[in-house]
């Protein structure tokens, strides 16, 4: 693709700009980007097109009919973004898009995040009361297995008590919500 400013060099800087809710894609060569003051280490807007072709590997394996069906039927009912738009721009329109396109997301995330599909990091305090406990439970289970393998039965018994207590708490929380 040629640079849209000088129409001579190959465009290497790509990003989308939003002005009055009109989205425009900008494609510049390095020199023009520097002239415009856009040279910056803004990792999210570099080589978006290259990223997109890497992101949607499975599309090539879909036949034409499947593609047409996908285009017509999949749409986020909150923001109206269609799967087709998501595929073209590589951006979700809202958090509900994640549910709408759920069945297509695993291969995308795997490709971008080294095979991972599930979050294991920080949890917001307000949202994750039970989730924090669930994480702790998973950790304790792992610890228990290790202790049993090491035949450290006394410690294992203590951990088992902790697990029982935590499970009760989780069940109580669930009951409270219902």
């Amino acid at each position: 693709m040629k640079c849209q400013r000088c129409h001579e060099n190959e465009a290497t800087i790509h990003y989308t700009q939003v002005i009055n809710s009109e989205k425009t894609e900008v494609h510049l060569c390095e020199q023009c980007a520097e002239q415009e003051g856009y040279m910056n280490f803004n990792e999210d807007h570099f080589s978006i097109h290259q990223m997109l072709t890497n992101m949607f590997p499975f599309d090539q394996t879909m036949n034409h009919q499947q593609k047409v069906q996908t285009q017509e039927s999949l749409r986020c009912d909150r923001c109206g973004t269609t799967y087709q738009e998501f595929r073209q721009r590589g951006k979700f329109g809202c958090s509900k898009c994640y549910q709408a396109f759920e069945s297509y997301l695993d291969p995308i995330f795997k490709r971008v995040h080294g095979g991972n599909t599930n979050h294991v990091g920080k949890i917001p305090k307000r949202i994750g009361g039970n989730l924090h406990k669930q994480r702790e439970l998973d950790q304790l289970q792992g610890k228990l297995n290790q202790l049993v393998r090491d035949e450290a039965f006394e410690e294992a018994a203590q951990v088992r008590d902790q697990i029982r207590k935590l499970k009760e708490e989780i069940n109580q929380d669930k009951g409270g919500e219902a």
Binding site: D44, M55, G90, K91, F92, G93, S95, Y98, L105, I108, F109, V112, T117, N118, H119, G121, K122, I123, P124, I127, G128, L131
Partner: peptide, 12 residues
Amino acid sequence: FDEKRGYLTSCP
């Protein structure tokens, strides 16, 4: 935030 996917962002 989603329990499975974590913090939801506009870009995957």
